[in-house]
């Protein structure tokens, strides 16, 4: 699963919160098929999607989520 954020500030905040909660995530480039943004996104396993969504909602971090983005 790929989580995208509006700013670098939000990406770093999200990564820090995931890390604090023991969630393994990977910083990846934003695929051009999804957005023309330059920048980074956070990749997590499908199993962890719900946990990450809950944490981000709780911390009021705005995000977009993508599946099958590796095509």
């Amino acid at each position: 699963m790929l989580f995208l954020f509006e700013s670098t500030h939000a990406v770093i905040k999200a990564e820090r919160i995931c890390d604090k909660n023991g969630i393994t995530c990977k910083i990846v480039p934003v695929p051009r098929s999804i957005s023309s943004q330059c920048g980074m996104g956070i990749e997590v396993s499908e199993k962890q999607e719900k946990i990450v969504v809950n944490i981000l909602l709780k911390k009021k971090i705005i995000y977009n989520i993508y599946n099958n983005y590796k095509k």
């Binding site: 700013s7 670098t8 500030h9 990406v11 770093i12 905040k13 990564e15 820090r16 910083i27 990846v28 480039p29 934003v30 330059c38 920048g39 980074m40 996104g41």
Partner: peptide
């Protein structure tokens, strides 16, 4: 750089910037 890309170097810089903030 700060942001702009995804590799470790930029991620490390971005983390430092946000920690300072």
């Amino acid at each position: 750089p700060y942001g702009r890309s995804f590799y470790n170097r930029t991620f490390e810089v971005s983390k430092i910037v946000e920690e300072t903030r």
